[in-house]
């Protein structure tokens, strides 16, 4: 198929960016979206131009590197799918496709479609862990049974890939879904409960310090999250947070 692409090009963090038009032909419906970008980049290199920079690594929907805003949607039109798992069969011959970076004040653009998501790391530094040393003599893994229901819910929360689509989608650039998922994972497990309250307090404080916006319950994040992280995680975070600030 033949496509008209409109792609965000920005030379560096301080430079001004703009949308640039590219025409591309011979795209197969079996290609992934990033393979289509590869084809475009090879073409650009062939004509002596700089290829479009974008983050990607696993191309399996698990590392959370890829981050394109496609036709106004984070990771494009297919639900529950990262950019790297999107296939060209979701588009038609002659389509115009807008490709932009995830946008948020807390995620500055580095170059073209590459953004800086280190704010997510700093939120994790502030409490995204259980304080246990590697000694080789923690208790036996089966010493504390965990109800399957809780284990499964913790797992569901833990599947967040840290991509930032939730932030990019939210009109307030809120990171609540991401932070809620991490806080929930630990709050649902006995091992995480000792520090649960402080964790919620500290991570929320860091989230605010990074400049993420507030949650006004539009639920857009849940819709665009490629891993189906549920809004109930935000509710659980709020409970943990309130529990924390009341007793502090």
């Amino acid at each position: 198929m033949k496509l008209n692409l409109k792609v965000w090009r920005q030379q560096g963090p301080q430079e001004k960016g703009r949308m640039v038009d590219y025409q591309i032909d011979g795209i197969s419906e079996h290609m992934s979206f990033l393979e289509m970008m590869d084809v475009l980049n090879q073409k650009l290199i062939g004509s002596g131009e700089e290829p479009i920079a974008f983050d990607h690594d696993c191309r399996e929907g698990i590392c959370g590197s890829c981050s394109m805003f496609i036709n106004g949607e984070a990771h494009g039109p297919v639900k529950g799918t990262t950019t790297c798992q999107l296939h060209m069969r979701s588009f038609k011959d002659g389509d115009t496709i807008y490709i932009e970076p995830f946008r948020a004040n807390a995620f500055p653009v580095i170059k073209d479609l590459v953004i800086d998501r280190s704010a997510f790391d700093r939120i994790q530094h502030s409490g995204g862990y259980i304080s246990v040393n590697t000694s080789g003599n923690t208790q036996d893994a089966n010493a504390t049974p965990i109800a399957k229901e809780h284990a499964d819910l913790a797992m569901d929360a833990a599947t967040c890939i840290g991509c930032g689509a939730c932030v990019a989608t939210c009109k307030n650039s809120s990171a609540m879904l991401f932070v809620g998922a991490k806080i929930s994972q630990y709050a649902l497990l006995p091992q995480g409960q000792v520090e649960a309250k402080d964790r919620a307090q500290n991570m929320v404080a860091q989230m605010d310090a990074e400049g993420f916006g507030n949650c006004t319950n539009t639920g857009a994040c849940e819709v665009e999250c490629p891993k189906g992280i549920s809004l109930t995680n935000i509710a659980r975070m709020n409970r943990e947070f309130l529990g924390g600030s009341l007793t502090k």
Partner: peptide, 25 residues
């Protein structure tokens, strides 16, 4: 030999391994 310590360590860190209905791994 150390393989068994790994599972203990990971559970202590909050790794949500799959469990059966009795709550065991």
């Amino acid at each position: 030999e150390v393989s068994t310590n790994i599972i203990d360590q990971c559970v202590a860190q909050g790794v949500p391994f799959a469990r059966d209905y009795g709550g065991l791994l």
